[in-house]
């Protein structure tokens, strides 16, 4: 779908902006909101590009940079940190060969730090796109990544 088509599903009211931006971002292959999207949202809502830009830049779930197909949100809030989230994050960085905040060169994964994801009783946790993963350890993280990689390989084969 084009951004135009997505926007037309919403009434042209400013209070719809966050919902619109979520929808636009989810629709883009790079999981991001482009400068052109921002102009279109501004036109549609009859407001300035600067004010839409201000909203996009404020919220941590929105990104202007293209991101991977899978966004990993890794919790580093107190309870996950207490049970080793930091050392897991280090090995995750190593496994993906990127730093937190970066995207792998094959555009498959983006690794983002996150605050509490509300599953502290199953710490340490992370979210990959819309799915939660609990009780993480190094082996489990490797499993999850290789599962996703395999899945993607299968999709590419005819």
């Amino acid at each position: 779908m084009t951004t135009q088509e997505i926007l037309r599903d919403f009434p042209p009211q400013r209070e719809q902006m966050l919902l619109m931006l979520h929808a636009v971002q989810n629709n883009n292959p790079g999981n991001n909101i482009t400068a052109s999207d921002i102009r279109q949202v501004a036109d549609y809502l009859n407001t300035t590009t600067a004010s839409v830009y201000g909203v996009v830049r404020y919220y941590s779930m929105f990104s202007m940079n293209p991101r991977g197909k899978y966004i990993i949100r890794f919790c580093k809030s107190p309870l996950c940190r207490m049970v080793g989230a930091f050392s897991l994050l280090k090995s995750l960085e190593k496994e993906l060969s990127i730093k937190t905040g970066e995207t792998t060169s094959d555009m498959l994964f983006t690794l983002e730090p996150s605050e509490c994801l509300g599953h502290c009783d199953k710490a340490p946790v992370m979210m990959v796109n819309e799915k939660m993963y609990f009780h993480l350890d190094d082996a489990r993280i490797r499993d999850i990544l290789s599962q996703i990689r395999e899945q993607e390989l299968k999709k590419q084969q005819p």
Binding site: S77, P78, L79, E115, C116, G118, D121
Partner: peptide, 11 residues
């Protein structure tokens, strides 16, 4: 908006 670390009752 439940975001207070350690809280998951609303969820």
């Amino acid at each position: 908006d439940e975001g207070e670390p350690g809280t998951y009752k609303d969820r």
